[in-house]
Design a protein around this nucleic acid. Structure first.
Lengths: 188, 188
DNA sequence: CGGGCCTTTGACTGGTTTCAACTTCTGTGG
DNA sequence: CCACAGAAGTTGAAACCAGTCAAAGGCCCG
């Protein structure tokens, strides 16, 4: 829980007493590798914060293969926000890539939380602003670069992460086939 | 200004008196077609709300051609959020596609605004949540569909909008060449 | 009415996918 | 602790989606 508190305190102030209050609205959970946190079609009832480990969000495309749209590492929030915002069936599934420590805030408790701790409204605004900014930059990169350049760029930006996940997941995230990624790796 | 007030009131309550207060923090501006609202390299000092008209966000890629990453129509907010959030030089430029009515909120006034009207913190959180949700769905569509399908999907989702903008801008936004788009239009 | 920008057309090119077969790695039960 | 089955990664050939380039035609706006 300390990881989450530390993250929040980077954006807003929170006394020890307020931290106590906060913890009553947070559900901590330990998940095993490959454990599912959200299934396509279910309602996304919680926002998920990764304290330790790694999650992925994906869907099954028409060819029947998994297409990864997002990873979440330490200190990132992950949700199907369309499902969360409107409480409608999810487009995406969320699964643990590694054994992970996750902290969840439920949609139906978020109102009460922000009433109890108004500064949390600001915190959520700021993390969403950063997440949206990252999404804009992602469009920039993947429009601008071809697949090969995208792979090299991504590898050099997150060298540790590339080792951490299976290659076929990286291929899926970058939008290329495992075969082609294999060819690129051979080249250099 | 009524358009903005109406939009805010869809998410949070705002008395007439509070609306008065709000207006002191908003800069309304009329822009002509092709007028620039942000240039790459400048600091994005404001969030922009489109009351009427249409804006586009773009950058110049290494080949020297404009690459559009986003459009904003009526009731949408647009900014280079990386630049806005960290007050650092912008990656993108923003320009009016049509003559437009725009309402701007300055970064250095946003704090004072949310102190004067705490419910605005909630408003911004909610519109960012929706914007981020839309960004997630966009990744879903454009990973899943090939260029032809993306074009047909987009045309059927926003038939009016496709008429409203020049073809080369649509091509740029969808990430294909004007020549190829022309070929697709001929086909059906 | 003219000039420049937008759109169309066609030939050629290449980056990337698909498919199928083979090899290597990994984890689970005996 | 080893064996083995399934999962993950590699290789190569053939096909295709989409880009590039060049040139001509259409259309908007001054």
């Amino acid at each position: 829980m300390q990881v989450l508190l530390a993250h929040i305190r980077k954006f807003v102030s929170l006394s020890d007493e307020e931290a106590e209050t906060l913890m009553r609205y947070v559900r901590p959970l330990e998940v095993k590798k490959k454990e599912m946190l959200l299934r396509e079609g279910d309602i996304c009832k919680e926002m998920l914060f990764v304290g330790k480990g790694c999650l992925r969000m994906y869907y099954i495309n028409e060819k029947g293969t998994e297409q990864i749209t997002q990873f979440a590492l330490e200190n990132w929030w992950l949700s199907d926000y369309t499902s969360y915002d409107r409480q409608q069936p999810a487009t995406f599934s969320i699964q643990a890539v590694e054994a992970s420590e996750v902290y969840a805030i439920a949609h139906d408790k978020q109102d009460a939380l922000t009433r109890a701790l108004p500064q949390m409204e600001r915190y959520f605004r700021l993390i969403l602003q950063k997440a949206y900014a990252a999404a804009q930059m992602r469009v920039f990169f993947f429009h601008n670069l071809n697949r090969e350049e995208a792979y090299r760029q991504f590898s050099s930006m997150f060298p540790g992460f590339v080792q951490r996940i299976p290659q076929y997941m990286l291929a899926s995230y970058l939008g290329l086939t495992p075969e082609y990624l294999s060819e690129l790796r051979k080249k250099r």
